[in-house]
Design a binder for these strands. Structure first.
Lengths: 277, 277
DNA sequence: CCCTTTAATAGTCGAGGTGACTATAAAAAG
DNA sequence: CTTTTTATAGTCACCTCGACTATTAAAGGG
């Protein structure tokens, strides 16, 4: 947590990692990684090495009109036909879970590849309950992504735009599979990450005002913050934001124009910006 | 992060979750979860739905003789024959990853089932680099467990005791597969969790002195802490520890006997106990 | 053009947490 | 009995933070 990416991004590490002993379906004697045959418990079940399907699911958040939105996709086929679900899909044969998440995000949101490439993408948790899919065993690696408010709505990428939509998290109804639990976990994690990392700027455009940054915190936390104190805290955190010299923008039309900032080089907040209560 | 288990324990939730749409190997048209056929990119590869093997790996930590130790197992077969590795194994057909981790932990450490059942067990991260196993595709869900210093060394459970050992993390050599990276991630995470959760007591026996608790922090962080200040902080955190009335224990033989405490009901630390610098 | 409104920015003050430090109490060793 | 050792109690300055007030710079209405 000290100096690493706020998203606990491990893809670069993943790629350079050596492989791990694995099952070969017809060679049961060599299947049980890391354990000797002598150590195996009695009742050893060959079905233990049944293959699994592996998917990624994405909780993508943005802030639009002062409300936290998440990207949902309407399912067209059973089970859960007609239900909304998190975007996601299967791992391809030669890609890591993070690569798959990035690919799915690009495909389903139609974001330019350049934007997707350097996006905040954090591995949330892996969901592996045996009955989470009624038809077969599926293990899913969930990721969280934070994006700025997009000029173009989601699913502009060629597909049926009606099938993918930004939905205010407050109005999200029942979701397919265990996606409601994944979404809840993602919300918890995102709120917590705002406290001790600089990821809040991921919700903002390249240049933003401190008022807009504060709105990110207030929207995600569902709390109101004291503006002078928030300002003092952010400016006192080295590397959180860097001022754009001479630049300012009229925020609401009225009032004093606000100075503009860009995201700084820091990824963690020392000390943290704790949410009230 | 607010009131949940410090280990982000999601097993209870997992079990109650509905299943997720999955691949059926002979029904390619229904394989791509959450996406319509119209949305699929060209060059769609049927091998994308190749089955994966899913394993769990365990970074088990304990403190012994003032040093942080981790449980390692010596591999008996290639690849990496003779190398040390983290304990772990394959998911069985009808168990969640957390259940598998708990089962593997019980099998490989020989701990009493009762102890394993209510153990701190936290999902760390999922490792999915395509080349992490030279023979086939293996996705591994890594867990971290913190245990008190065990009277009996590891692998007392029937097997070849020479194949499993507590090893000081400072002297861990090269490990099999990407286990060195997993171990490093687990160390990072454990150090960070000590700051804002109460998991440190997981390293201690049921009754412990504040000096022993402080040693946990000092050992994991590799730093020395001021004793009066540590004491003040711990006692000021409601629910972190509860005193055992009238009980005391001679710690080193010499000196004033220390009061005994048990772990309290709290799981998170407000405000956090930040490590120095 | 002046005055009001609105929002950003600057500054103040006290409570509380924390680091560094000193002092006392209770045990064993000599 | 004295020394040593370790737990425990207490002190003090600094720094952060929450709550609050004051000033500045824009738009809008008369």
């Amino acid at each position: 947590m000290s100096t690493g990416s706020p998203a606990h991004d491990g893809s670069a590490r993943d790629v350079s990692r050596a492989g791990r002993l694995a099952a070969e379906r017809l060679d049961v004697d060599r299947l049980d990684t890391g354990r000797l045959a002598a150590e195996r418990p009695e009742g050893y079940d060959p079905r233990a090495f049944e293959p699994f399907a592996v998917t990624v699911d994405l909780a993508v958040f943005t802030i639009r009109a002062g409300q936290l939105h998440t990207l949902l996709i309407r399912r067209g086929e059973p089970p859960y036909a007609g239900r909304w679900a998190l975007p996601g899909g299967f791992l391809h044969a030669r890609e890591s879970a993070e690569d798959a998440a990035r690919r799915e995000l690009a495909e389903e949101t139609g974001l330019p590849d350049a934007l997707v490439a350097d996006l905040q993408l954090e591995q949330l948790r892996t969901y592996s309950a045996p009955d989470r899919d009624p038809r077969m065993r599926v293990v899913s690696v969930a990721y969280t992504a934070l994006v700025p408010d997009l000029p173009e709505p989601a699913a502009s990428g060629g597909g049926d735009a009606d099938q993918a939509r930004w939905t205010p998290v407050a109005t999200v109804g029942p979701l397919a599979f265990d996606h409601a639990a994944i979404l809840a976990d993602a919300l918890d994690r995102t709120g917590a990450k705002l406290e001790y990392t600089c990821v809040a700027t991921a919700f903002c455009p390249p240049e933003f005002t401190l008022g807009e940054l504060q709105q990110v915190y207030e929207t995600v936390w569902g709390a109101t913050l004291d503006r002078p104190n928030f300002r003092r805290k952010v400016l006192a955190s080295p590397g959180f934001v860097t001022p754009v010299p001479g630049a300012s923008r009229l925020t609401g039309g009225r009032g004093k124009p606000a100075a503009l900032y860009r995201r700084g080089p820091a990824t963690t907040l020392h000390p943290p910006l704790l949410r009230p209560r």
